[in-house]
Design a protein around this nucleic acid. Structure first.
Length: 262
DNA sequence: ATGCCGGGCGAAGCCCGA
């Protein structure tokens, strides 16, 4: 069972690139972020033609998340609990029935939080607090669970080209990293780091200042696995080559393979 | 160097991202 996450930076602008990757990579389940369209404007037909079911939580202009699955998506939860008045479409979750039981998948678009001296950073930290509370609830289900998405947090200095330059940034601030560490401490596994100990492995390169050409990247797109999922983890990789395609997103797909055969 | 790209919106120029 191949499960992927990808911040596509507008599904409308990126549809050809995204479909090309889906045809090649053929993930069983995919978490998309920054679709930047309203729910009913999501290009469902294009994905259905490839055999996918779609669960979408969209929003006009900004944010927006989706779950795509070759199998039926059940028990869809739209939005992260605990956010009374939070209008930003940043979380969708669903359950996929497999031969070896339920697979629960969440698609996360965590707030950026910059600049850090504003309420944007406060919103980010509060959102992370809500995510921790929700992950703690999900832990009790003892299911195969994958929380995939654009976390907008650089876990460690080895996950950024220039840690010094990023030290004050909301993506690398200690408060953000501490909250991500709390997620891990709930018993979740960073799938990529469970499979790859090489430093300087990135999932995002800015469009500006030749960041891609200079390999000035950061690793902020993560797949966090429950113990039941981590036990089934076979591989995890970053599809870096996609960043060199025509009209790329600034993020690339990250995927893992779980053994759900039995 | 926060605004060098790139997208949304909407029809010029501003908001936003990481």
């Amino acid at each position: 069972m191949k499960i992927a996450t990808w911040n596509v930076n507008s599904i409308k602008a990126r549809i050809d690139t995204v479909l090309t990757w889906f045809k090649q990579a053929s993930p069983d389940v995919a978490c998309l972020q920054e679709i930047k369209c309203e729910t009913n404007a999501f290009p469902r037909l294009e994905f259905e033609a490839l055999g996918y079911n779609c669960a979408v939580l969209g929003q006009k202009s900004y944010n927006g998340v989706a779950l795509l699955s070759k199998h039926r998506i059940e028990d869809v939860r739209e939005g992260l609990p605990g956010g009374a008045g939070d209008e930003q479409a940043r979380y969708i979750e669903g359950v996929i029935a497999t031969k070896s039981g339920a697979l629960r998948v969440g698609s996360i678009y965590l707030p950026n939080g910059n600049p850090p001296d504003t309420d944007k950073f406060t919103y980010k930290l509060k959102w992370m607090e809500r995510l921790i509370v929700h992950a703690r609830e999900l832990r009790e289900y003892e299911e195969v669970l994958v929380l995939g998405g654009d976390y907008n947090v650089i876990p460690m200095a080895e996950d950024v080209h220039d840690a010094q330059a990023w030290s004050g940034d909301a993506l690398f601030r200690l408060e953000s990293r501490r909250h991500l560490r709390r997620m891990i401490n709930l018993g979740l596994t960073d799938a990529f780091r469970a499979c790859n100990s090489e430093p300087q492995q990135y999932s995002f390169w800015d469009y500006q200042a030749g960041a891609w050409q200079k390999n000035n990247g950061i690793r902020i797109d993560h797949l966090l696995l429950s113990p039941q999922a981590a036990d089934r983890l076979q591989s995890c990789a970053i599809d870096k080559h996609v960043r060199a395609w025509e009209k790329p997103s600034d993020h690339v797909p990250v995927w893992c393979e779980l053994d759900m055969a039995a």
